[in-house]
Nucleic acid binder design. Structure first.
Lengths: 166, 166
DNA sequence: TTGAGTTTTCAAAATTTATTGAAAAATAAT
DNA sequence: ATTATTTTTCAATAAATTTTGAAAACTCAA
């Protein structure tokens, strides 16, 4: 396989994978491109390489920076901004967990808290409260577990999980 | 808060959450409805309750059954099929992990395996191979860890993770 | 075997989400 | 202050995904 074909395949697959992880396809493709880049890329480099508009490039670079998956790098004497990817996979996963926890798990916990206040003593209400309580308990456990995971350092995590792999 | 309002809120939120987890909104809403139901529901009950078409109802029920999140229940003397939700949250999470592993992680591993075969000795190729190798290693570790997680039983998991929460 | 009830299929329509492109704003060298 | 370059914004457009609805297939009792 040629390098260009390999790069192309990797970028496409990373894009598809990302789109299932709350990262849209272009956003993930930019991340993929920067992952396999051996130098910082300007927004224009990225635009050219992926054949996308400047607006799209700009919005997704900023989203990536916001998620902590890409860093801005200033080259002395250069007017343009340059960008590099976070390449430590555990760091990448941690950043994604952090974002999704904030955007999904935490709002869900608030809703569960809220709806657990329903009035009534009938069987339907009791069943509803029971289910909500169960999910609330599970979710807050997951929330704490994820917090700990994120706080823990890379090696500790790998170590703990490796011991699980037998 | 009234029970109906609470149910409605819960169904909507579960729908939104699901849509970030590879489960489309309707599919997650059906699951939510069945979670808080205190009896089996027919496809028609679901259609009526959520105000969706029969086609949509049918497709999403089958997807839920395929994912192992809903079970078909036959009532003696009844012609219709009835459905109940898997209510054990850890079981739900395991099923989702299983599906997503199959649909996302495993294809990615195959692509990584494939593209790691690129030809060439130059710096670009070396950088590419290095990144791919790193991701491949991380991904296969994650894959094994998830396998173990799925195999392990509910209490073992909760126990292990609780000890992490301090 | 017929036919009422039920489930499945799938092309077309509706909805949601992502992308473009052009204009405006910011930046920094002259 | 002027101008060339780069970045940002956002309404319009395009693409992708979901939902519908109507027809076909299936199921089972009579």
């Amino acid at each position: 396989m040629e390098l260009d074909e390999g790069k192309q395949k990797f970028i496409q697959s990373w894009g598809t994978l990302g789109s299932h992880w709350g990262i849209n396809r272009t956003m993930a493709q930019i991340h993929a491109l920067l992952l396999i880049a051996n130098r910082p890329y300007s927004a224009n480099d990225i635009k050219e390489e992926l054949n996308i508009s400047m607006g799209n490039t700009n919005m997704n670079i900023r989203a990536l920076i916001d998620w902590g998956l890409v860093y801005k790098e200033l080259k002395p004497g250069e007017r343009k901004d340059f960008f590099v990817a976070e390449k430590d996979m555990w760091e990448v996963v941690k950043r994604i967990i952090t974002q999704r926890k904030k955007k999904e798990l935490e709002p869900m916990l608030r809703v569960l808290e809220d709806v657990s206040k329903v009035q009534g003593e009938d069987a339907d209400t009791e069943e509803f409260k029971k289910v909500v309580q169960d999910i609330k308990l599970f979710s807050s456990k997951a929330d704490s577990a994820l917090d700990n995971l994120i706080k823990a350092d890379s090696n500790w995590f790998i170590g703990t999980f490796m011991s699980m792999i037998k």
